[in-house]
């Protein structure tokens, strides 16, 4: 019995393929990937993982020796097709959970989690509408699951990613994005660095604005679907700029994260 897991009744004779009650499970850390100085990916072995869709998240729960528990949500970074489940976590210095997950956790450690969770901010490769992804900081994580899902399924859906980071050092998945964007299968990646740019930087160097979206976004007549994920001000700013540009609100899906996410 997992500590803290709810005790089900009479579930033994029911099919287990579509569990309705969300249960806490134990995953073990198979691999740690330091993505940036403040961000790490935890690659987890989770027995009986039911599978997930790109864009979903898991809840992670830590229990202190005195029984105190802290729960946080983290987006799944891995594609549904990947063998292992990966989450990517940004370390927030005053957070209760992230400083443990980025800095303390070691390969082989156990992590308590439940999921997958979410049915709104989800993209499936069977959706062939042109895809616009807009990320701020670690808001790239669920969008990366979509990009990885797209690559794993061989989808040719025209896809554009606009990714805002503070500096080049803060760009998560930089090498993998470069590689996927050079495959010539319809994915383009545009970066904007808002605080510090390296010498000779040819990308954008400012916060996302109308002119930038006008260059990167699909013409609204192509009926694109949009996913925006990042800090609340970025998400709301981008969504309202897109609506001003004539995008239908129903075609824009948003996910905010904030300081309570630590």
């Amino acid at each position: 019995m997992i500590p803290g897991a709810s005790s089900g009744t009479g579930e033994t004779d029911k099919p287990t393929s579509t569990p309705q009650v969300l249960r806490w499970q134990i995953g073990s850390v198979a691999e740690l990937v330091q993505e940036t100085p403040r961000v790490a990916s935890l690659v987890l072995d989770v027995p009986d993982w039911p599978g997930h869709d790109a864009g979903q998240h898991v809840d992670v729960r830590l229990t202190a020796d005195d029984g105190y528990q802290a729960e946080r949500s983290y987006s799944i970074a891995s594609a549904p097709e990947d063998r292992r489940l990966a989450i990517t976590v940004e370390r927030l210095e005053d957070g209760e959970v992230s400083p443990y997950l980025v800095g303390e956790v070691r390969a082989g450690d156990k992590v308590e989690l439940r999921g997958p969770i979410g049915g709104y901010f989800v993209w499936k490769a069977s959706d062939e509408r042109p895809l616009l992804l807009v990320a701020g900081g670690s808001g790239i994580v669920p969008l990366m699951a979509m990009i990885r899902h797209r690559a794993a399924t061989g989808s040719k859906t025209p896809t554009r990613l606009l990714y805002s980071s503070r500096s080049l050092e803060d760009v998560i998945y930089k090498a993998e994005l470069d590689r996927l964007a050079s495959a010539g299968d319809g994915l383009t990646v545009a970066h904007t660095l808002t605080r510090k740019q390296p010498e000779g930087w040819t990308g954008y160097s400012r916060r996302i604005d109308t002119a930038m979206l006008a260059e990167v976004a699909w013409p609204k007549g192509q009926m694109p679907i949009v996913y925006v994920c990042g800090p609340t001000p970025l998400v709301e700013g981008v969504a309202s700029l897109l609506v001003d540009m004539g995008y239908g609100p129903a075609s824009i899906k948003t996910e905010r994260f904030g300081p309570t996410g630590g």
Partner: peptide, 22 residues
């Protein structure tokens, strides 16, 4: 700054409704 959205309570709502609610 503290505003999140309904995606953040998907797990909590699953506890109550037992199904995906976002």
């Amino acid at each position: 700054d503290l505003k999140l959205d309904g995606n953040a309570i998907g797990g909590l709502l699953r506890e109550i409704f037992t199904m995906e609610m976002t």
